[in-house]
Write a protein that binds this DNA or RNA. Structure first.
Length: 502
RNA sequence: GGCGCCGUCGCCAAGAGGUAAGGCAAGGGUCUGCAAAACCCUCAUCGUCGGUUCGAGUCCGACCGGUGCCUCCA
């Protein structure tokens, strides 16, 4: 039985959907005005894992995430750069999508944009005004918080407390400092849409109510986002939506992911302590970053540091290497010990129990270590059939965690790999004993063939016990990320990431 | 000031009343010409002080330290 931590009830609630077999989920997306950082990546990955597990459980998942493509920051930025606001927003929306593609986040059902849902937004604001929940003043239409009796139920605050903490008001016409803008009247030079209140644009919170209600309907299952959105964003969404529909709940389960922090401070643009996904992806494979992001419970803060990322890289390599061995065994058609069915079943059970406990990916990772420890320790005795059985389970686990490349051999690392190899050859030619042999290699061949010839030459030296030469060759290759592994069967190579790149 | 969260081995991190998962690092082995990889072994009583309980990282209280939200933010 799946249990999820619900911010509204502050409890691990049993997950029951509105409709049988279907999950409707809305996750607050980004305001695309700059490069997305790893915190945005974490949110995307977290809800992607949740999405994937729900599908594993047999649900059909209707998952959407918005782009808030009109707001103060976008207007300010586009004015600074002298570009059209929509072009700016679409540029960064595209970068965001590219980045999370690299993290192997599934594309969602829909990515609605605020500016493309103006009709629905106006309809809701108008309705709230008609029902007496909203009022118009000189600079816009505001939601009257005191009219909504349950205001504060999500963030667990009282209106009185909030009022004490409220900042000095900009517009004295507001009835209450807590009232927030549903619709902002246009200032000169700002993008604007026609409305019953003249030219203007949506306030910050209304677009999420409009898009979620439009595409998912009232009372949908999951609403997610960063925990910094609990107040005021999600609190206001509830107030708007439940007042508008006249029904509750607007959302059945409120899920919130923890922030990424750096040196214990929240990663944010204003503190300038952020790492963009684009820069991290230059140094680390997207799946390594993904693994790093799911090593800790999704609702806890994640303290970002390179050392932990490096640890994730090692763990990823271990999974990868172990899976390759298992695949080789599975394809070998080799007789051997059969794994007890009970073992597989127990692993499957602990996988599901972990995920059922509010998506405990950390425990799933521990399980993966257990499985691979077993397969590695028994790789010589196990039958191919057993390997296939283990692989079947791993396929499910990896598909839920969102790893598509574990077990693939990396054939070439990047485009400059051949250049690197030629550099190695050049360096090795400084050794007179090697020069002649290496010059026989045809440099017009592809990188894998060249590499193979180098390894063959080294093999000859090893046979003659010329370990000085073979060690020299091994060291040179290691510098470009080629690690040689000698065994009785011959020399295998694998490609690993180096500091300079993948 | 209000509402929260967190403090578990050098580091990362599960566990949430029944006697401390996992990973990285470290040390010792097996294997290897040496490595690498893999495997085996070793490695914590849970911020402090009280309380509840047969039994507490796990519940309650106080305190110490850190941090989030209350303003835009995944």
């Amino acid at each position: 039985m799946l249990k999820v931590y619900n911010t509204l009830t502050r409890n691990f609630d049993e997950f029951k959907t509105r409709e049988n077999g279907k999950v409707y989920m809305y996750v607050c997306g980004v305001t695309p005005y700059d490069y997305p950082h790893i915190g945005h990546g974490r949110a995307a990955v977290v809800y992607d894992v949740i999405h994937r597990y729900l599908e594993y459980k047999g649900y059909e998942v209707f998952h959407i995430s918005n782009f808030t493509d009109i707001d103060d920051k976008i207007i300010k930025r586009s004015n600074e750069l002298g570009v059209y606001y929509k072009d700016l927003a679409e540029k960064y929306a595209a970068i965001y999508l590219e980045n999370i593609d690299a993290l192997n986040v599934k594309r969602l059902w829909k990515y609605p944009r605020a500016t493309e849902e103006i009709d629905k937004i106006i309809e809701i604001v108008k309705s709230l005004e008609d029902k007496g929940y909203a009022y118009e003043i000189s600079d816009g239409v505001y939601y009257e918080v005191r009219k909504f009796k349950e205001y504060g139920k999500l963030s667990h605050r009282s209106v009185e407390e909030l009022r004490k903490g409220a900042r000095i008001e900009v517009n004295p016409e507001k009835k209450d400092p807590l009232d927030f803008a549903l619709w902002k009247k246009a200032k000169p030079g700002e993008p604007a849409w026609d409305s019953p209140w003249g030219k203007g644009r949506p306030g910050w919170h209304i677009e999420c109510s409009a898009m979620s209600l439009k595409y998912l309907g009232n009372g949908f299952d999951i609403h997610g986002g960063g925990e910094d959105l609990i107040f005021p964003h999600h609190e206001n969404e509830i107030a708007q939506s439940e007042a508008y529909t006249g029904e509750k709940p607007f959302v059945r389960y409120w899920l919130h992911n923890g922030m990424v922090v750096v040196n214990k401070e929240k990663m944010s643009k204003s503190l300038k302590n952020f790492f963009t996904m684009s820069e991290l992806l230059k140094r680390y494979d997207g799946e390594v970053i993904r693994l790093y992001l799911i090593t800790i419970s999704y609702h806890k803060p994640l303290n970002f540091d390179m050392e932990s990322l490096e640890q994730a890289r090692k763990n990823y390599e271990y999974f990868n290497e172990s899976k390759i061995k298992l695949n080789e065994l599975a394809n070998a058609d080799k007789p051997g010990t059969e794994i007890e069915g009970g073992k597989i079943a127990a692993w499957k059970k602990s996988f599901e129990e972990a995920m059922d406990s509010d998506f405990n990916t950390a425990n799933v990772l521990a399980l993966l270590f257990e499985i691979f420890k077993f397969s590695n320790a028994n790789i010589v005795s196990l039958s191919s059939g057993s390997a296939k059985k283990i692989n079947a389970l791993l396929k499910d686990i990896f598909s839920v965690l969102g790893f598509a490349k574990i077990g693939e051999k990396r054939e070439t690392i990047n485009l400059s790999f051949k250049e690197d190899l030629l550099k190695v050859i050049k360096n090795l030619k400084k050794n007179p004993e090697l020069a002649e042999k290496l010059s026989k290699i045809s440099l017009s061949e592809d990188a894998p063939e060249i590499l193979k010839e180098i390894i063959d030459i080294r093999f000859e030296f090893r046979k003659q016990k010329r370990f000085d030469i073979s060690d020299l060759m091994r060291d040179e290759l290691k510098k470009i990320g080629v690690v040689l592994e000698d065994s009785k069967e011959g020399t295998k190579y694998k490609l690993v990431m180096t500091d300079e790149g993948k």
